[in-house]
């Protein structure tokens, strides 16, 4: 009986530790989760209806700050965009793909200020266009996220030019 009580106590402690770990994530895990959520938001496994796409597109403000600075010389993308503009790019870009996958690797997360995160990572975008062509892009990115109303929002995204033509 004593043994059973001890086992239950150990299980309870483990469960409590897991609950604290899961429900009160560290800042680093919160930022990593935001990257994971962004991946899920962008990726799609197959064709989807316009209504679904419109609904998804409106979630841009859950990921991007009211003004997010973009710098991607390779794509002639330089300037500041609002979540509404991101939604429009999302809709237009996503409509061209049958399958789309966005994944992040090697995330190095630092906190220069308590509500600011600087992240260096590698992003890989793969997909199949509606005409059957496949797309595969890999880039190093530097992102700045600001914590606003409990959410880490992207306020700056820079595509690092590793290979300079």
């Amino acid at each position: 009986m004593v043994t059973r009580k001890k086992i239950l106590a150990v299980l309870a402690v483990l469960l409590a530790a897991w609950a604290v770990w899961y429900f009160f994530p560290s800042r680093t895990r919160q930022v990593k989760r935001q990257f994971g959520s962004l991946s899920e938001w962008v990726s799609k496994d197959g064709p989807e209806g316009n209504l679904t796409m419109v609904n998804e597109a409106t979630r841009a403000d859950q990921f991007f700050a009211p003004r997010c600075a973009w710098e991607a010389p390779k794509y002639d993308l330089n300037g500041t965009v609002t979540p509404q503009e991101v939604s429009r790019y999302y809709f237009a870009g996503r409509a061209r793909f049958n399958k789309l996958s966005l994944k992040f690797y090697d995330l190095d997360i630092r906190f220069p200020e308590s509500r600011t995160a600087r992240v260096n990572g590698t992003v890989r975008i793969t997909g199949t266009l509606k005409d059957g062509d496949s797309v595969s892009e890999t880039h190093e990115v530097e992102c700045t996220l600001q914590k606003t109303h409990g959410k880490w929002l992207f306020s700056q995204v820079t595509v690092v030019e590793v290979l300079k033509r």
Binding site: Y105, D106, T122, T138, H139, L163
Partner: peptide, 13 residues
Amino acid sequence: AISLAGEDVVYLK
């Protein structure tokens, strides 16, 4: 092999 942000994904050129 050329590293990007780390070594999980690299360029081969």
